[in-house]
């Protein structure tokens, strides 16, 4: 890879930005680069990072999934309720994954069959899944004290917290699907020009259903991690987290128009957001400013992307 190619490579830029932030934060505070804080950071980032992987696929396809926070809550509630009914925790875990995947599949079917734009279809699901979570539990949070979930939420393996492994495996698999497999190629084609994709014989509707099902599945996977961390399944969990997932994808440099972007940058985007929150906390700056800063970062990220596109 030559220098000019490196310059235009979005991964290089975003990694540099993230590294720069880490250096600045560790210079500003001796507490930033400690094992304790890094463990904390990786736990904080895990939920949003897993959601961002699914959101990245959806956004590359030219769509959006606003329902992931609610689907996460619904999946968590399914797990909590089943465990309370003395169902085997492993079975409950898979039932939760199934619930999320089903909700995502419904999103995909509504978008392709009823021809409803993704923004509206998933906005509907945002209400439906959250409402169902509340209906199922009557608004009550169930404790989850099964060793399986406590292990997922709190244990370490080789010195690293388990949620981090969920993140790594998620990104590994999603990156392979998107960059090495036919399905991923189709997602990029659909995001680039859906009409052309259809004319060239790509089964656009089928692939879209799979895209939203994948996003739903990853929301459920995030629910598994969340349940482990909270040791409970409150139906009001993860409100507005979809916006953080979308922000992570955008900050990472994945084009909101669709068709362009590298999966791993969504993880780096999530890391940058977590570092802002974590860093400002350590520096004792009010959390009110964090929201302002994250907002500014989103706009600057897209602005930089626009500058790059106009150079193209």
């Amino acid at each position: 890879m030559d220098i000019s190619k490196l310059k235009s490579n979005s991964i290089v830029w975003i990694v540099l930005v993230a590294a720069l932030m880490a250096v600045v934060l560790s210079l500003l505070s001796p507490f930033f680069m400690t094992v304790g804080n890094m463990t904390n950071l990786s736990k904080q980032v895990s939920i949003v990072a897993i959601l961002a992987a699914g959101q990245a696929v959806v956004i590359i396809s030219g769509g959006i999934d606003l329902s992931v926070g609610s689907v996460l809550a619904l999946s968590a509630v399914v797990i909590g309720t089943l465990i309370k009914m003395d169902v085997d925790p492993t079975l409950a875990l898979f039932a939760g994954l199934l619930a999320g995947t089903l909700a995502g599949t419904v999103n995909g079917l509504v978008i392709t069959r009823a021809k409803i734009p993704p923004f509206i279809a998933t906005l509907g699901m945002l209400g439906i899944a959250r409402g169902l979570a509340l209906v199922i539990t009557g608004g009550v949070s169930h404790p989850v004290l099964s060793p399986l979930f406590l292990f997922i939420g709190n244990a370490k393996w080789l010195g690293l917290p388990i949620p981090l492994y969920f993140v790594v495996v998620t990104y590994l698999i999603v990156a392979i699907i998107m960059h090495k497999m036919v399905f991923g190629r189709h997602v990029y084609a659909i995001g680039g020009n859906e009409r052309v994709a259809r004319l060239q014989g790509i089964p656009v509707d089928l692939q879209k259903v799979k895209i939203y099902a994948l996003s739903g599945f990853l929301a459920a996977l995030a629910a598994v991690v969340m349940t482990g961390r909270l040791a409970a399944t409150p139906p009001s969990v993860a409100q507005a987290i979809e916006l953080q997932a979308i922000a992570a994808v955008i900050i990472g440099g994945i084009s909101f128009v669709g068709g362009r972007g590298v999966i791993i940058t969504a993880l780096i985007g999530a890391l940058i957001m977590a570092m802002i929150t974590n860093g400002l906390n350590i520096l004792g700056i009010s959390s009110f400013y964090q929201q302002v800063l994250i907002g500014v970062v989103i706009i600057v990220a897209v602005w930089l992307d626009n500058l790059k596109s106009s150079n193209r």
Binding site: G191, V196, Q200, G259
Partner: peptide, 8 residues
């Protein structure tokens, strides 16, 4: 209208 995906 040039039926290609410009991003690929």
């Amino acid at each position: 209208e040039l039926a290609l995906c410009g991003n690929l």
